[in-house]
Computed example of a mutant assay.
Amino acid sequence: MPLVANARMYSATPAVRDAWKVLLRWVLARAGLAWEVIDYDAPAPLSALWARDDLGLAMMCGLPFAQRGVRPTLVAAPIPSPARYGGRPVYFTDMVVRADSAFERLEDTFGGTVGYTLADSMSGGVAFRDHLAPYREREGTRLYARAVGNLIHARGVIEALAAGRIDVGPLDSYYHDLLRHDEPALAAQVRVVASTGAMPIPPLVATAALAPEDLQRLRQALADVAKAPDLKPVRERLLLAGFASADPAAYDALAAMARRPVPSFEEL
């Protein structure tokens, strides 16, 4: 069965998507693997992509990775290059408001409308809800008058904020940084008022069974990305320092967070 590769999860703009495709093709060529780099654009659901059994190298949200009974093979994890990541394969959830709003702190948004992407999304739902839960417990009453869900992705959050449909919403920090770098006019419509702590970043995984020698060559090719001179423009476009080996057990914390009994957004 021919295997495929894809980086839809962090294809924040068309130019970023194309850069990921260049990088994946370089990696596969260096590893000597004749796999196809496929397109899988929005609004096609990521859950359907991750359910495929022919993925040789694809980005997957850390939460479904951690929740699977039989986990995919964790190949490597990206290391974003901006300073806030500290050279680690981590990311955050940024809580954002409309740029011209009067809100200065997350607490200033209480009483308004909270937005989220999907309830089972790590950065767009679970991590945001978990961050809000202590405020809800401390206040002893609902934090928000209304919740708007199913915003799907970061662009949906930004569009809802710009239209005044919500007062605050979550963005995956790496996706947010890619937008700020490559599509600044869109990103400038919002600003950050709070962020979660660091979490293990969505990794590159294989749902297909890989031969040990193929996996070794693939991991070496990904490690070589950081120093490859011909990939410098691609790394700059992707705000990417390189790739790190990652411990699958690090993602257990995400599944544990999702299991915590915290209120739904409609109850926050």
Rank of each mutant, 00 (worst) to 15 (best):
W35I: 04
G111D: 06
A29I: 00
D18W: 01
D182H: 15
D41K: 00
G156Y: 00
D120T: 15
Y144S: 10
A187P: 14
S81Q: 06
A66S: 11
G124W: 02
L33H: 02
R68Y: 02
G87Q: 04
D54F: 09
R136N: 13
A250K: 07
L171Y: 01
F128L: 15
A187F: 11
T109M: 01
S173N: 03
D167H: 09
G156Q: 03
E183A: 15
L23F: 03
A206K: 05
R260G: 07
L161E: 08
A198M: 08
I158Y: 01
L171D: 05
W50H: 14
L151V: 09
G156C: 04
E183W: 14
K232R: 15
V75E: 07
L49G: 10
A244I: 14
Y174T: 07
R71D: 12
D41H: 00
P80Q: 01
S173E: 08
G125F: 01
S47I: 07
I79V: 15
L171Q: 12
S47N: 12
F110S: 03
L23V: 11
D230W: 03
L239Y: 06
L57N: 07
P184D: 11
V168R: 05
E213L: 02
A66R: 07
P184Q: 12
T207Y: 01
E266Y: 06
H176D: 14
G32T: 02
L179R: 06
R165V: 12
G69N: 12
A226T: 12
A19V: 05
A102I: 12
R235Y: 09
A133C: 09
